[in-house]
Write a protein that binds this DNA or RNA. Structure first.
Lengths: 95, 95
DNA sequence: TATGGCGTAAAGTTACGCTTTACAGATGAT
DNA sequence: ATCATCTGTAAAGCGTAACTTTACGCCATA
């Protein structure tokens, strides 16, 4: 399964679904076109502030986008963290 | 309700619960004492990488810590975002 | 007194979100 | 054909944040 950047979902399910251009959507959200373009093309994360912006303009809760971003962030470094050699801690049996 | 920094929970439920010092816990996690101190005192976030470190050393899943951090981040800017004046988008009724 | 744990501060590196500006390609209308 | 619009993208600059190394002072205990 591919790790889908939340910006993709934002574009398809919100911007495209409302037949909005990136330019117009960026104005509605109060950010520059460059900023929104970076997000929907997976170059930037959806920041906590952006979560609130999306919710304020298009409805829903900020949590949805924040959770999508969090999941994406975890999965995107999953392979890297596999190679981390950290010893699991075992609490001493006897106090 | 107070917005509890996940570092607090890390200290109480993991480090203290295992009767570890900050110094020893930082060594187990493979970061400096300064870094862990900043986290448990609410000065730094629990980064995605740190989520994996905690899970690798103390068990559980990285998601737990990531979700705690995400919730904290959203709540910490909640008041600020209340004052954001963004017009809700209303899709045109007629196509 | 000496040792170890702790909070914290400064300085440096790296990285990222966001901005402004600007360029080039693609599409559509006149 | 010319023009306007939308789009991706790049560079430069700002602010911020995680993490590191080094270091200082405080406190408790052996």
């Amino acid at each position: 399964m591919r790790n889908i950047h939340p910006g993709e979902i934002l574009r398809e399910e919100v911007i495209n679904a409302n037949e909005l251009s990136i330019t117009d959507a960026s104005k509605l959200l109060g950010v520059t076109r460059t900023t929104l373009s970076n997000i929907v093309n997976g170059k930037s994360e959806i920041s906590p502030e952006m979560c609130y912006r999306i919710a304020a303009v298009f409805g829903g809760s900020p949590d949805i986008w924040a959770n999508l971003q969090t999941k994406y962030n975890l999965r995107s470094i999953e392979d890297k963290m596999k190679h981390f050699k950290l010893s699991p801690y075992r609490a001493n049996i006897r106090a």
